[in-house]
């Protein structure tokens, strides 16, 4: 049995409680949510927190609520909650696309959106999802609450704007009319992390052109959005040629590294292939006139 190094443990029941405990136990105290990223690292002794602050009883963080033109998702919402949510699926189908291929049911029953964003693993799927949906992250800290855009929140692999003494409390997704989104991932096996994945969100204008587009990649060496790829779409009428051009540009924006999951050229090919696939599907979902070759 793999066993972690010794640590202390406290259970919090409110956001205030969490912040106090983090303050009290200092820099080596860490929040634990679903534990599906943190515990494996602790068992391998790659992570050695001195204190774990368990936030699973902080019930105020479990909501999924449509509120005007935003969808508010509490940081403790589980992968399984997102997957089961009708409103999530209706407004942001790519969340369901992604959740279906994140890990397996056992992990999804515990893992949370806050933990996923907080972990910021380069192969983690929800960061890309939140990127392309232009989500905002609410962070509570000793001096109050702040709201940061994903672009500012996600700073790179395993690095976010959330400091050790802070807590992600909510993720806010702007709801937009005539929009469509999609996510697709290639994995070697169910439950495996992505070899590569792509996500896209689009908004259509009344005249049938694309009003806004966002494209993101997972595990393919791109931080943030593939802006050039998205830019070629905006103001244009959807066509297979346009989609292909966006795919090409997304591949260009990627900078994957070789590992056991595959060599660089394959992964770059995936950036192209998967971008084209998610664009076609997102367009379709946005009600765009059918694109050829979908």
């Amino acid at each position: 049995m793999q066993v972690p190094a010794p640590f202390e443990y406290a259970r919090a029941t409110s956001v205030r409680d969490v912040l106090e405990l983090l303050e009290r136990h200092g820099p080596e105290s860490h929040v634990i949510a679903g534990g599906h990223s943190l515990l494996p690292m602790m068992k391998l002794r790659l992570a050695r927190p001195e204190w774990l602050i368990d936030i699973n009883d902080v019930v105020e963080l479990r909501h999924i609520a449509e509120d005007g033109d935003v969808l508010r998702v509490g940081a403790l919402a589980r992968h399984a909650d997102l997957l089961a949510s009708e409103v999530v699926g209706r407004l942001f189908p790519l969340v369901h696309d992604a959740e279906k291929v994140i890990a397996d049911p056992v992990v999804r029953n515990r893992g949370t959106i806050g933990g996923s964003l907080g972990q910021a693993d380069p192969a983690e799927d929800l960061t890309t999802v939140c990127d392309v949906l232009r989500a905002q992250v609410v962070i509570a800290g000793p001096s109050g609450e702040r709201v940061v855009d994903m672009a500012d929140f996600h700073r790179g692999p395993y690095e976010t704007a959330c400091e050790q003494n802070e807590l992600i409390t909510e993720v806010r997704f702007p709801i937009r009319a005539r929009s469509g989104s999609a996510y697709e991932k290639v994995e070697r096996r169910v439950g495996d992390w992505a070899v590569g994945a792509a996500g896209a969100a689009l908004q259509m204008a009344d005249d049938g052109t694309i009003a806004d587009a966002a494209i993101g990649l997972t595990a393919l060496g791109l931080e943030g959005l593939a802006t050039d790829a998205a830019a070629v779409l905006v103001g244009q009428r959807p066509s297979e040629g346009l989609v292909a051009e966006a795919g090409r540009l997304a591949a260009e924006a990627s900078s994957p590294v070789e590992d056991q999951r595959g060599p660089v050229d394959y992964k770059r090919h995936l950036a192209d292939e998967l971008t084209r696939r998610v664009l076609r599907r997102a367009l379709d979902r946005a009600g765009a006139t059918a694109v050829q070759g979908g």
């Binding site: 391998l44 397996d104 070697r188 096996r189 169910v190 439950g191 992390w193 056991q260």
Partner: peptide, 29 residues
């Protein structure tokens, strides 16, 4: 046929040392 493999890098590090790296099939495959 599809996924299992114990690989090594040039230093002789075992690249198949966990079930995240050494994949065995599930009911889905």
């Amino acid at each position: 046929a599809l996924m299992e493999f114990i690989g090594f890098d040039e230093q002789g590090n075992c690249l198949g040392g966990s079930f995240m790296d050494y994949l065995i099939p599930t009911a889905m495959e």
